[in-house]
Design a protein around this nucleic acid. Structure first.
Lengths: 182, 182
DNA sequence: TTATCCATGTAAGAAGTTACATGATTGA
DNA sequence: TCAATCATGTAACTTCTTACATGGATAA
C-alpha cells in the first residue's frame, strides 16, 4: 500500500487534481494516513506514463494549469488488484510512547507537558472527526471515522486515568520515593 | 526519534548487545515501534564511532563475537537531549483502513477476511501484552502496556460492532440495494 | 500585512526494510 | 527434520519527507 494506490483509490470516486487528492486524503483519513505533495505529484506522473490514469490540463489564469486526473479502465483493474494483494497491515509508530518509557530521565514538567500536548492533539483530532461527519458520507467513510473516534476516545481516557504512572517518577527533580511515602 | 535514540534508551537500562536490544524493543513496544537488525547494527556502530556508547566484544565459540554495548556519559547526555528535543508525534498508518474505504470495489468475502484477519491480529497482540505483564515491570512499562491494551480493546470492540458498515456493500457480487430493501 | 489558499513540480537526502551471507545449537 | 534461536553485518533498494522554486488572490 503506497501513495500510488492511494491516488488510484481517491480517483475511483471521481476525477481530481493532485491538490484535491491531498485534501481528500487529509479529510477522510486525518491522522491515519498522509501523503505529501512531494509524493503525490510524482506518483500521478508515473501513473499517467503507465496508463493507469489519464490527465487533462485546464488552463487557469495566473496559476499553473490545473491537471485533472481520471482513472482509466486499466487503472481501475490495477486498483482492485493492489487492494487484493495488500497485506493491509497497521503500523502505529509512537514517539510519544517511546519518550514515556524513559520518563524517569526527564524532568517531571517535561513529562506532564508531553502528555498534555498529546491529549490536546487527540482531542483536536476527535473534534475534527465529529465536525467532518457529513450526512452524505458513505458507509465506508463513516466506518473509518468511527474507528478513529473509538480509538481516540480510548486513548484520551487512558491518558487521563493513568498519567500518574509516569508523572512524578523523575529521578532528576525531587526524590520521588520520599514523596511517595512521607 | 529514530533507531539511534531508541538504542540509547534501551541501553540506559543496562548493557546489551544489538540482538538483545531488538528483543527488548519487541517485548516492550510490540507493535508500537519496531526496528530491524538492518537499522540497529549500523546505528550501534555509528554511536560507537561518535563516543556515545562503548563496546566490548565477548568471544563465543562457533558464533560471531557478542558485542555488548554500554552507554557512556556522553551517551546519557545525548539521550536526554534527544528525548527533550523530540516532537513525540504519533503516526498511525493503517493500510487496513485505506482498504476499507474502498471496500465497495472488493468482493464481500475479501472484506470479511480482512476484518477477521485484523481482529485476529489485535487479539493476539492483546494476549501478548497480558502475558508479558511481569511483576517487576516499571511503572513506565506498565503505562505503555496499558495504553496498548486500552487501544486494542477499543479497536476490537469497534470492528465487532461496526463491520456491517463495510460488509455486504460490494458492487461486485450481488446488487446490494436490492438485498437491503427486499 | 501577514497568513492561507490555490497549484505544480524537482532534487536532495533521510530513514528504514529486505535480502543476503554465515552457521552451530536446541527443541518440537 | 524442520523451525527457531542466537549473532552480526552489508548492500541494494524503496519510500517518503523536506526544502526549494514560483506567485496571484483572498481573508483576517
Amino acid at each position: 500500500m503506497d501513495v500510488r494506490t492511494l491516488c488510484l483509490g481517491v480517483l475511483s470516486f471521481g476525477p481530481a487534481s493532485g491538490y484535491e487528492i491531498k485534501k481528500q486524503v487529509e479529510r477522510i483519513f486525518g491522522p491515519f494516513f498522509d501523503a505529501s505533495f512531494g509524493s503525490i505529484y510524482p506518483a500521478l506522473n508515473a501513473l499517467t506514463r503507465e496508463g493507469f490514469v489519464s490527465c487533462t490540463a485546464q488552463a487557469q489564469e495566473k496559476r499553473p494549469d490545473k491537471k485533472v486526473y481520471s482513472l482509466t479502465e486499466n487503472g481501475r483493474f490495477k486498483l482492485v488488484a493492489d487492494l487484493m494483494a495488500t497485506s493491509a497491515r497497521d503500523r502505529f509508530r509512537s514517539e510519544f510512547l517511546v519518550a514515556m518509557l524513559f520518563a524517569e530521565l526527564l524532568p517531571a514538567s517535561r513529562v506532564s507537558r508531553l502528555i498534555d500536548d498529546r491529549l490536546a492533539i487527540y482531542r483536536r483530532e476527535l473534534g475534527e472527526i465529529e465536525q467532518d461527519c457529513r450526512p452524505d458520507a458513505s458507509p465506508a467513510e463513516r466506518f473509518i471515522s468511527g474507528f478513529g473516534e473509538a480509538v481516540y476516545r480510548a486513548a484520551i481516557a487512558y491518558l487521563e486515568n493513568n498519567r500518574h504512572l509516569v508523572e512524578g517518577q523523575s529521578l532528576l527533580a525531587e526524590p520521588a520515593r520520599a514523596a511517595v511515602a512521607p
